[in-house]
């Protein structure tokens, strides 16, 4: 299993793990702030962003699509904050308004414009193409030390590494004010912490994770990883640091296990083809959440 594994299975597995952790990290704080659905909203408004990028450039290429997705995510985040503050409604309702409006706008744009001759694939947006992120230059484990071969790694890999570094650095640097303002916002503001910009920065980090990930793995994994590993981790511990560590472990476990099960599971039970890795990874994360909900040591909530 040497050369084939390194070329065909290792890259998607590693990318899956990176995506899962990049989403689970900010997901911990979104969950504790009862903003978990913002990850859902971001990964959906990405669609109109892609359509607009295509209409403007006429290209179905990664660069413009990524820019369009990022632009849409930023517009959505800012619009949600604006509706929440100006309309004085809670963030869930604000997200509902913006998410629906932008998604509807994307669908309208698709129908109005002449995109019928181009294959803008909804399935791709949902499930991504994790299995196709292969490393053709690899000839075996030795390729991991070969600069020439390493240059041929899927571009999604370096993109995810970069996104994960940015997100992890942000959390490391602002850990204390984030925890404080999530736990007791009035007290945090009394200490001089600017909770508004901090909350916005957290959402922007989530948007970075979602946009960087969606092209490689689709929105299914993104949505699942924002919520499932942190929610399962919360039931394992009563300490924030431990919760974040558990969530990374669960996220990585779901990515590896899900990928393996998708590739080999159907063969084991005698079915023919493999199933979608993205779908399987999301399913495994849901199963982990289910097990934690039944057996986690800190399941009871106060309210």
């Amino acid at each position: 299993m040497g050369a084939e594994f390194v070329a065909l299975s290792l890259p998607p597995m590693v990318i899956g793990v990176l995506v899962a952790i990049a989403c689970a990290l900010p997901g911990n704080f979104l969950l504790l702030r009862r903003q978990a659905l913002i990850g859902d909203a971001i990964s959906h408004v990405v669609l109109p962003g892609i359509v607009v990028a295509f209409l403007l450039t006429g290209l179905v290429a990664t660069g413009p699509m990524l820019l369009g997705a990022a632009g849409a995510a930023v517009i959505a985040v800012v619009a949600i904050e604006a509706v929440r503050r100006l309309g004085r409604i809670e963030s869930g309702a604000a997200m509902g308004v913006i998410f629906t409006a932008m998604f509807a706008g994307g669908v309208l744009l698709l129908e109005q414009s002449d995109t019928s001759n181009v294959h803008l694939d909804v399935e791709h947006a949902l499930y991504g193409n994790l299995e196709s992120l292969i490393w053709l230059d690899a000839t075996g484990w030795a390729s991991l030390l070969d600069p020439v071969a390493l240059a041929g790694l899927p571009v999604e890999l370096s993109r995810m590494v970069l996104a994960l570094i940015v997100i992890a650095l942000f959390l490391w640097l602002f850990w204390r004010p984030l925890a404080l303002s999530t736990f007791d916002e009035d007290f945090a503001r009394g200490l001089g912490i600017r909770t508004g910009p901090l909350g916005l920065a957290l959402v922007i980090m989530s948007a970075i994770a979602a946009v960087a990930a969606f092209d490689a793995v689709g929105s299914i994994i993104v949505i699942a990883m924002f919520i499932c590993p942190p929610a399962a981790a919360r039931m394992m511990t009563n300490r924030l640091g431990h919760q974040v560590a558990w969530s990374c472990l669960f996220a990585a476990l779901a990515a590896v296990l899900g990928y393996v099960l998708a590739g080999y599971g159907p063969l084991w039970i005698g079915a023919g083809a493999s199933v979608s890795a993205a779908g399987m990874i999301a399913t495994v994360s849901g199963i982990i959440l289910g097990v934690a909900a039944v057996a986690g040591p800190h399941r009871t909530r106060n309210s």
Binding site: L32, L173, R176, L180, T182, D184, L191, R239, L240, N302
Partner: peptide
């Protein structure tokens, strides 16, 4: 104003009072 479900222990809550001295 407090989130009582937050994963934080009593001693950690008290440590929060030292935030301005400890910094980031």
């Amino acid at each position: 104003s407090v989130d009582w479900d937050f994963p934080v222990r009593v001693i950690d809550v008290v440590m929060m009072g030292m935030y301005r001295r400890l910094g980031l």
